[in-house]
Write a protein that binds this DNA or RNA. Structure first.
Length: 594
DNA sequence: CATTAGGATCAAA
DNA sequence: TTTGATCCTAATG
């Protein structure tokens, strides 16, 4: 039985993440594969550090036992079954189209022929496995969601795979690549089985109609505990959680929030709208209770602009009240944070590209409050088309950017019943991005010719990632109804739609790890030499210092000062020099290297 | 010259 | 109080 225990932390901040992420297009496109993969990662038994030093370490909050402690009977209507999102089985009459690509890395011709796959599947420093099987997923543009022709989902050639950028695609392959790199290098222990990338053609949620919602599932077959969410029928969420995550790892306090994530998907209004008609059919089954107000409220909360603190958690309280007998608790949560980090990186990377693309295509400012009424409409049209929503009715949207930014989700829905939720969420994401760094200042309308080829622009987006990460693992959230806990946490549930200044509280070591986590954008200035040992090298001290100064709003930051801060970490046990000291090479101490 | 180490001081949280 | 920014001297290569 799942009970919500008073006094325990409620992961309201974490529950915001799914909404944020699922409204990133890459997650709408590939949410299931990613979450499924993430799930597989999370349930995979892993070696964890046993201790976490206190000095300077910011432990994540205790959000892991939300599902275990949450008593759905507290919700209006009691414990009613919740419609679990269950990608349905394929219809038996339609054989699942799959593209199998087998290649043999030992053959040099093959390597030449398909180098992307090689690098995708095999870490550089490792020998390739004996056999690698690829079932190549299709490219899915946002508009593909509504297409019903199966042929469109499956390009005739494996080369037209997800990993091959399409000129018409807005999406880079890099996030997926990164994710695979992450899964292969970081998450999975060595496996005797060959890696296999499995693609599955899911139908619409709950499987009641034709295949309009393909999803891609990447599975490591060596993960026996991978959660099977391919259940065709309405499932009690409790049962789902217990059958999947709870039984396996909740006792170890490491994966409950994933159940929460899943449940939020189930409760996703925007997802339902995204999937459109099919879901309506699905809803003819009396399954989706509308009265889980509390849960819905939390899950629908989009106030991810809430100020986040990076405060140490009072483990005395948590430990005493919840699970003192689980010494690995904090370490496991730290692992979870590490696990979700690349997912966030992907989302942010995708966001950055999306915003860039849209700004360039429409010639608008990244700052929505600067949009004119025409630009507002332009953005709405663009975004609507990205998500295959009906075009906005101009009469409904005769407002400037400032007004648009102030609209609530309800306002959006009123103006656009079909797409309001998505549009609002997209705008929230957009605003979240622009609120961290004042992009409107760096953005010049007439810089069409300037080499804005992603060079430094990408640097502007790391604060957002920090924000997301902080939401995941570092925010001390409290349940709205939890009166005893609410007092101790930063009570700022107001959801300002306007951006505040006020920098993030990121620490230098966090920032460095953040840069290290995005080698595709910052690999030129800082990179891992030995990820497992936490050894990294600053390749461009000037640039790293500049980025750090930018983040902290310290224009005078230089490497002299930055390195002084790093050296302060020596005695705090956060960083050290490597055994044989090398220039610009540092090493994270345990467990900061994780 | 850049880098490293670490003392001292100050400001902000 | 902690953390980081700033400035500094000295040593290293």
């Amino acid at each position: 039985m799942v009970r919500y225990r008073r006094g325990s932390n409620f992961p309201c901040n974490e529950s915001r993440i799914p909404k944020l992420l699922r409204n990133c297009r890459i997650f709408q496109r590939e949410s299931w594969c990613i979450w499924e993969e993430l799930c597989a990662v999370l349930v995979e038994p892993q070696e964890m550090p046993q201790t976490v030093p206190s000095a300077g370490f910011t432990p994540p909050c205790d959000y892991t036992n939300f599902a275990e402690n949450f008593d759905l009977s507290l919700l209006p209507g009691g414990e009613q079954p919740v419609l679990a999102y269950a990608p349905p089985p394929l219809p038996p009459e339609k054989p699942q189209p799959k593209i199998y690509t087998t290649f043999y890395p030992d053959s040099p011709e093959q390597e030449d022929f398909r180098p992307d796959f090689q690098t995708l599947l095999v870490p550089d420093e490792e020998k390739p496995p004996a056999n690698v099987y690829l079932e190549v997923p299709p490219i899915l543009s946002p508009n593909s969601y509504r297409q019903s022709s199966e042929a469109n989902f499956y390009p005739s050639s494996p080369e037209l795979s997800l990993y091959t950028p399409s000129p018409n695609s807005l999406y880079s392959q890099s996030p997926v690549d990164d994710f695979f790199q992450y899964v292969k290098k970081e998450a999975y222990p060595p496996s005797p089985y060959p890696y296999r990338i499995k693609e599955e053609n899911f139908l619409s949620p709950c499987g009641f109609s034709s295949p309009t919602s393909p999803a891609t599932s990447y599975s490591n077959l060596s993960s026996p505990e991978q959660i099977n969410i391919q259940q065709a029928e309405t499932t009690d969420v409790l049962e789902l959680l217990e059958n999947t995550v709870l039984d396996k790892q909740i006792k170890q306090e490491s994966t409950v929030d994933f159940g929460n994530i899943l449940s939020s998907f189930q409760d996703s209004e925007s997802l339902r709208r995204l999937l459109g008609e099919d879901f309506k059919e699905a809803q003819t089954v009396p399954s989706k209770p509308k009265d889980h107000q509390l849960l819905r409220e939390v899950l629908r909360d989009t106030s991810f602009q809430k100020k986040f603190n990076i405060k140490p958690i009072d483990f005395g309280f948590i430990g005493g009240d919840i699970k003192m007998e689980e010494p690995d608790e904090s370490a496991q949560r730290d692992l979870m944070r590490e696990n979700i980090e690349p997912v966030l990186s992907m989302a942010i990377e995708q966001m950055r590209k999306d915003v860039d693309t849209t700004c360039a295509a429409l010639g608008i400012s990244p700052d929505p409050t600067q949009w004119s009424a025409a630009e507002v409409l332009s953005w709405l049209q663009w975004t609507s088309r990205q998500f295959s929503l009906p075009d906005p009715v101009p009469d409904q949207w005769d407002l400037n950017g400032t007004s648009l930014a102030a609209l609530s989700e309800e306002d959006f829905t009123r103006r656009s019943p079909q797409g309001g939720v998505i549009l609002h969420a997209q705008l929230e994401i957009w605003k979240a991005a622009c609120s961290e760094e004042d992009l409107s200042m760096s953005w010049q309308p007439e810089t069409a010719s300037s080499n804005a080829s992603s060079g430094d622009m990408s640097d502007d987006w790391s604060p957002l990632k920090a924000r997301l990460l902080s939401c995941v693992a570092f925010t001390d959230g409290s349940f709205p109804d939890d009166d005893e806990e609410a007092s101790s946490s930063q009570a700022d549930p107001t959801r300002p739609t306007t951006s505040r200044s006020g920098g993030s509280h990121i620490h230098l070591w966090q920032f460095l790890k953040e840069l290290l986590a995005s080698p595709q954008t910052h690999g030129s200035c800082i990179r891992w030499l030995d990820r497992s040992k936490g050894i990294f090298k600053i390749e461009d001290s000037v640039k790293v210092a500049r980025l750090w100064g930018k983040r902290k709003n310290r224009p005078a930051m230089n490497y002299d000062k930055l390195s002084r801060s790093i050296r302060q970490y020596y005695k705090k046990g956060i960083m050290k020099k490597t055994e044989r000291s090398q220039r610009l090479v540092y090493q994270f101490c345990h467990p900061y290297n994780l």
